[in-house]
Design a binder for these strands. Structure first.
Lengths: 225, 225
DNA sequence: CTGGATCCCTCACGATACTG
DNA sequence: CAGTATCGTGAGGGATCCAG
């Protein structure tokens, strides 16, 4: 970071922003929270990032001790980026900021895309542990082309990408905002199915439980202007 | 936010970054967490921010529902900026990020400044509630020209700027890194006084308690590279 | 004096093309 | 696959100016 562009304050927050305050940086961290990724994986998860910027951010994050660049053992010679222990401490902030931003996320614009990692993170971020005590569930969710799954095992969540062959609930929606309407409780689970917005394989009760586990709080959330 | 510069993802974190991801934005929020401020107050708290950027950020934050622009009643006609309820929800993130960044905050560089708000936020961020259960204390701290105070009342912290006339502990240090050495436990409270790094009015026991309340965890913290 | 607006310059970002 | 090279644009930085 050039001295001139520095915030020039001896302050933890300013230092944090010097590290992960640059454009794209925290989104890279977001994708790496879900596990090590290769350069190309990051590109596909962040389709609009220029490669030179991705390159630069990775170097900066590595220099700051947030990301570790690991060269795979032979014969692949592939390169993988993963969070260091220090970088992993950002997970809470990423989830918290994600929840905060989601509140002012309006209707999706046509050009908005949904990425696998974004969706998985959203599941993690909106998961309500107290509503899930002792629960067990195997859910698969498809939004447009993106397929992710959520496994709740005795109240503990494991969310990941890809399908879940033995899921007891499979949900599909084409419209990007279908999930938003459902999870923000603008429409009920029954309405979501009746309107054709969602196709569901599994019991309606299970579908409603999905909304309980991952939907908005029933009490009014703080809304932006 | 221009469409072209948008991250283009329908994702809570991306949305959060569209709002508070721009340069200086979160530092403005940091200063406003401590209470309403006028344009000039923000300038002095962020000495290196260009006024046009401050102007632009305030407008963006206002449009996003994070900041409210309040015109004071007569006769002052002054303008005050304050966080909305939505904006106030960022306090946890600001403190969390501040703690995270502080871990990789090296020795202060000569041009680094310490602001009042940064110092007060640091006190709030590093306060250890569990170490303070039922405690009462009135501390005044001076770092260079910056004077702040911390009041612990039955375990609850109130940190603010300015001196505390009836403090039972008054601490002073000239060097910017004096506080860092002490709170990172690189030197003990006794050493801090013996070396002349700190001048203290009050009992050494109280001074040690200050370190316990606001210092680094005794267990090894995750350190960056 | 506060609360900005305006101008100009630079550099980071963004898009595209290309390489080991 | 994993980046570098090149180049145009616009946001950020710094100084100055202006209205209430």
């Amino acid at each position: 970071m050039s001295r001139l562009r520095s915030y020039g304050q001896y302050c933890g927050l300013a230092q944090a922003l010097e590290i992960i305050g640059e454009r794209w940086a925290l989104l890279i961290v977001r994708d790496l929270v879900l596990g090590p990724k290769r350069f190309t994986d990051l590109r596909t998860g962040l389709p609009r990032i220029p490669t030179n910027v991705l390159s630069a951010r990775l170097k900066e994050l590595e220099a700051a001790g947030v990301v570790h660049r690991r060269t795979m053992p032979r014969p692949s010679a592939a390169v993988a980026y993963e969070l260091t222990a220090y970088g992993s401490e950002l997970e809470e902030v990423v989830l918290h900021l994600g929840r905060w931003g989601a509140k002012s996320l309006g209707d999706p614009k046509p050009e908005d895309i949904v990425t696998i990692d974004g969706e998985v993170l959203a599941l993690r971020a909106t998961f309500k542990e107290d509503a899930a005590r002792g629960a067990n569930a195997r859910h698969q969710l498809q939004v447009a082309e993106v397929i992710v799954h959520a496994i709740v095992n005795d109240g503990a969540l494991t969310a990941g990408d890809g399908p879940l062959p033995d899921a007891d609930l499979v949900m599909r929606t084409d419209a990007l905002d279908g999930l938003k309407l459902l999870l923000s409780r603008d429409i009920s689970a029954t309405e979501a199915i009746a309107s054709g917005l969602f196709t569901v394989e599994g019991s309606i009760a299970e579908f409603e439980r999905f909304v309980d586990l991952f939907g908005a709080d029933t009490q009014a959330a703080t809304a932006p202007a």
